[in-house]
Design a protein around this nucleic acid. Structure first.
Ligand code: FES
Ligand code: FES
Lengths: 141, 141
DNA sequence: TACTAACATGATTAACTTAGTAATGATAAT
DNA sequence: ATTATCATTACTAAGTTAATCATGTTAGTA
């Protein structure tokens, strides 16, 4: 499973925004960049994509920043991953091999497993996991 | 799950070799190329990789070709996929994000699901599935 | 032996994707 | 007016992928 930097960064940005929920102070790109370890110039584009998908709101101007547009429980990772271009699922286009044989069915079966796994996790779950993790380690990210 | 052409082709080549097991006539690259829908010049390199991994034997000369080096039941797709460079599993190198937080654990969890799925399938299974498929469709690949 | 049909190997390449950066503009609080 | 933020478009360097090309080696056979 290849997780692109873009996908990794997007989920981490959402985790940062969701972690302090329901505290809705706007978080600035620079702050998210630093805390999540994402290059700032790259993060901007990712946040805009998330905004266009309706997951975050942006606030412009001097006191601006980003906040979640939905509650963490309503942000499903399966959707994020799918909408952000997926994990590069088995591309049936332009490959000359058969599409409906045992091999392709196997690849599709694996795709389904991934989707099932992601469907079981929303941003609230991920934040809770992270809180547990932090508690166990006794230091913040 | 991004399945590279290389990976797809490798599995299909093995399926072709395993499908007629235990008939051990050498199959030529050209024949495999045509039946599996794989560009011949590309397939050569893939077969050599499979040979170096010990999955097939090659026979040179005029009556040459390729045969399985192991019985289909001993060829596990999980190994093939892993040894052929994997499915591009979550690359922890050079990315600045944390490696042991909830996000990375999620990616690793997905990796494990894929591996588990692949561990449940060997070449014999895949051949059987394909035979069922062919029987249901009433035409050969 | 000469020929030929197969596999072997390394170099090269075109297209594509990824992971960014640069430059410039728009908005809103102070 | 200034300034700190988000917005948008364009650009690019590096890497990967999916191949092809050129050339060499092996072995059956007439
Ligand atoms: S998640 Fe916001 S400061 Fe740690
Ligand atoms: S699998 Fe060999 S001819 Fe169909």
């Amino acid at each position: 499973m290849k997780v692109s930097a873009r996908m990794d960064y997007a989920v981490r940005a959402l985790l940062e925004l969701g972690y302090h929920w329901p505290d809705t102070h706007p978080r600035q790109v620079r702050e998210i960049s630093r805390k999540a370890g994402v290059p700032q110039k790259f993060l901007i584009h990712i946040l805009i994509a998330l905004k266009n998908l309706g997951y975050v709101h942006s606030i412009r101007g001097k006191t601006g920043g980003y906040i979640l547009a939905l509650g963490p429980q309503d942000i499903k990772l399966a959707d994020i991953v799918k909408q952000l271009g997926g994990l590069g699922s088995f591309d049936e286009q332009k490959r000359k091999t058969k599409k409906n044989d045992a091999v392709s069915l196997l690849w599709q079966e694996i795709d389904q497993r991934i989707i099932q796994t992601l469907k079981g996790v929303n941003l609230e779950d991920l934040c809770n996991r992270q809180r547990q993790h932090i508690k166990a380690l006794s230091y913040d990210i």
